[in-house]
Amino acid sequence: MNEQLAAIDIQDVSFAYGLAPVLQNVNLSIAQGEFLGIVGPNAGGKSTLLKIMLGFLPLQHGSVLIFGKSPEQQRSLIGYVPQYPAFARDFPITVEQAVLLGRLGATKRFGPYSAADRQAARQALQEVEADQLAQRVISALSGGQLQRVMLARALVSNPKILILDEPTANIDMRLETDIFDHLRKLNKRMTIVVVSHDVAFISDYVSRVACLNRTLICHNTDAIDGQLIQELYGYHVHHVSHQHLPFAPAA
C-alpha cells in the first residue's frame, strides 16, 4: 500500500435527504495510521458521513476515495462497528458464527469455513478478550460483551481502516475506557475513525478531532475549548466534567 496515499480522502461532499441538507461541502483527508474522532450535535451529519465513507449511501456531490479507489471497491479493507446492532438480539446464532460472518469476502464462496477462518475468528475474539464467549448465543450477551463481539467481527477480516459509530453509546463509562484502550492498541496497525458524543473523553485518545454540524471543522485535540464547541453546536453547551476510572476486567 502506497504510504503517501490518504486512507480516506473526502472532497467537497454534500448530501441531502429529500429537501433537508445534511452535509455541505465537506472536505476531509485522513492519513494512514491516524486516529480521528468525529464529534458534533445530533442530526449534524456524523452517521451520514460514515455511511458515505462505507459506500452505503450514493454520492450526490463530491468524491470519496479509500486508498485511492471508491468505497465500493475497497470495502474489504474496512472494518465497521455500528452504533446499534442491525440484527435481532434473539437471533439464533453463536458469537463464533457471528464473528465468522466477518470473513465473508475474504474466504472461499462455497462450503464450510476453512481452518484459517476459524483461527482468524479465535484471534479476533482473543484480541477483544471475548474468546470465552465463542460458544455463547448472542441473546445471552450483555451490552458491553456484544460491543466487543461486534468489534471482533469488524477485526476478523484484518482491515486497514476501522470505522466505529458511537461504539460506547450503550455501555457504562468503565467499559468505555476499556474499549478506547483497545482502539489505541489497534491504532498501531490500522487507521481508526470514531464518531463519539463525548468530546472531552475522546480527546485523550484521538490524534485529531473533526467537528461536524453540516459543515466540517478539523482541529488538533489541544485546540478544543468551550468556545469552539459552543460555536460548533450553535447554542450554549453545558460543560460537565467526569473522570473515567481505570478498567477492571469484567468477570
Binding site: 462505507l54 455500528p82 442491525a86 460472518l101 462455497f110
Partner: peptide, 22 residues
Amino acid sequence: GLFYHQFLAVIFDEEFARLRNV
C-alpha cells in the same frame, strides 16, 4: 447448502453483509 453462509449473512445483518461484499 451451497450458499448457507451468504443466506445467513443476509438474514442476520444486511448492512454488514453488504460491507463484506455479499
